[in-house]
Amino acid sequence: MTAYNYDANRDEADLLDSAEDIDLEVPLPLVRRFFDRGMTVLAIVLAIAAIIPLFSVLKEIIQRGLSGLSIHVFTSLPAAVGEANVISGFGNAIQGTMVMVSIASLVSIPLGILTAIFLAEFGQAGWLTRSIRFILTVLSGVPSIVVGVFAYALIVLNTIAGYRGFSALAGSVALMVIMLPIVALSTEEALKLVPVPQRLGSSALGGNRFDTTFRIVLPSALAGITTGCLLAVSRAAGETAPLIFTALFSQDWMTSIMDPVASLPVLIYNYASSPFAEQNAMAWTASLVLLVLVLVTNILSRIATRKRAGR
């Protein structure tokens, strides 16, 4: 890249020859170039900073939680406070979480799917469908602690079947309210992806609304619906705020849904703020179990959605 020296006496051929030597890449003014490079570096640094917490959380949970993991954590009850080096576990918390999430699913999944069917199949795109969808969106944004307060007022403060107080039922009701809009909205999305000609075809063959929905539309959308339900379940399994004052906690196995019951998230919360090191350690092990449960469900359902959407 020799510098181009202007010479008025050169002829045209000369000019053409030397044109190859001209640096056509006109450099940007330094300010603009620095701004561009600087912003790129800044954005990359911020993006890396954004994923550090996730990896830190995963690393710490595996590091601190794995050592406490044994068969006993699934089968034993928590040891009494201050007792180190004894067999201890949180089987009752796993049981409680499973029971409450199951009861919540039993109500919210059918109700959510029926709501979605109304929105996607029967909705006359009018104000009714739009407002129902809007209200469900708002419901999904209500803080989970407010949902807990609702369940508290509804169940804990009232006498049900001769019992008044904290219960697994109250916790289930709270989780139900949290799951409902997630199931309904994601199922509606899944139903919308089923092509209309399939419905028309079913109708042309004499299928009525009921047959069309249950034999054609729902089977086609099954993968998407499952995804939505799994997401709702994984969200409910990790919820703490609505459980601490509805299901409360228990040191024992659950025997009745009208009793206070332990759950994994509440156990982690209680043991995290405990002054005893062995309870802190147990909180990490419980986090490992809960995180594996939640992340596996979540990642599986996401992969299923991606494949379905063909991305």
Partner: peptide, 17 residues
């Protein structure tokens, strides 16, 4: 994926890490 981590676990990480 950060959104999928239960908030109590983020809290635990917040306290100890």
């Amino acid at each position: 994926l950060i959104a999928a981590i239960p908030s109590v676990i983020i809290g635990l990480w917040g306290i100890f890490v």
